[in-house]
Simulated assay, not measured.
Amino acid sequence: MPEKIMENNKVTVIGEIISGFTFSHEVFGEGFYLTEISINRLSDQTDVIPLLISERLIDITGDYAGMLVEATGQFRSYNRHEGTKNRLVLSVFVREIAFLEEFNDYTKTNQIFLDGYICKAPIYRKTPLGREIADLLVAVNRPYGKSDYIPCIAWGRNARYASGFEVGSRICVWGRVQSREYVKRINETESEKRVAYEVSVSKLEWVE
């Protein structure tokens, strides 16, 4: 795999495993499974992040609930067909995983770097309290002509800066992967709780 491609999407997360493994898919006889880890924020909130991991990296029949792990890899997306619509599904594709005895530096539990392209016009808005927010969708290239589409959210000065990006602009993003609950309206009488995953931006740069 080209080194340059690997370098444009890098994630490190450290957290506690809180679920078992469920089968996702198989590629050339290699099975991939999903599990979830809980990551503490400095604000005392937690993010629950899905990991997509090969059966060749870990014994997926084991019980690891409550164990602390460090996983490195890439933040990836794919479109899942639901009826007549597509739903963007995101997870951390794990390349390396290690079990930890303990970890005290919570400033380094959740880090991501992306180098990609704006693929939809940024949506800039202000909250009722005046906080500036910008929603971005960043396409990050992968080998063999594939791309991952990563939702990002910027705040304050970064949001104002990002609001001027044009579709096709190349940007670099630093931040963390976060989970966020929201209510999806199904029809006039039904709605359901869902979880969205996105990158909370701490720094971003436009690349000429």
Rank of each mutant, 00 (worst) to 15 (best):
G145M: 11
I171A: 06
W174C: 14
T189H: 07
A162I: 05
D135A: 07
D135H: 10
N158K: 12
L129S: 11
P143M: 04
V177P: 07
D135V: 04
V173A: 06
R160Y: 09
K126I: 08
A134W: 02
R142Q: 06
C172P: 03
V138N: 06
V177R: 08
R170V: 06
G168I: 01
L129N: 13
A139W: 01
I171H: 01
I153V: 15
R142W: 02
R180Y: 12
I150E: 02
Q178S: 14
G145K: 11
N141F: 00
D148C: 09
V167H: 02
A134C: 15
N187A: 05
G130P: 07
L137P: 00
Y161R: 12
V173K: 06
P143S: 04
D135C: 06
E132K: 12
R160V: 13
S169G: 04
R157E: 15
V183T: 12
Y124V: 09
I186Y: 01
L137S: 03
I153C: 13
I150L: 07
Y124F: 14
I171K: 05
K126A: 08
G175S: 11
G145P: 09
A139I: 04
R157S: 12
A159F: 00
L136Q: 08
S163F: 02
I133A: 07
R157K: 15
R180E: 14
E166H: 10
V177T: 02
G156W: 03
R160F: 12
Y124H: 11
I153G: 03
E132A: 10
Y182W: 11
R142P: 02
R170C: 10
D135I: 06
V173N: 08
I133M: 10
A134L: 08
R176C: 14
D148S: 14
Y144C: 11
N141H: 04
L137E: 01
V183G: 00
R170I: 07
S147V: 14
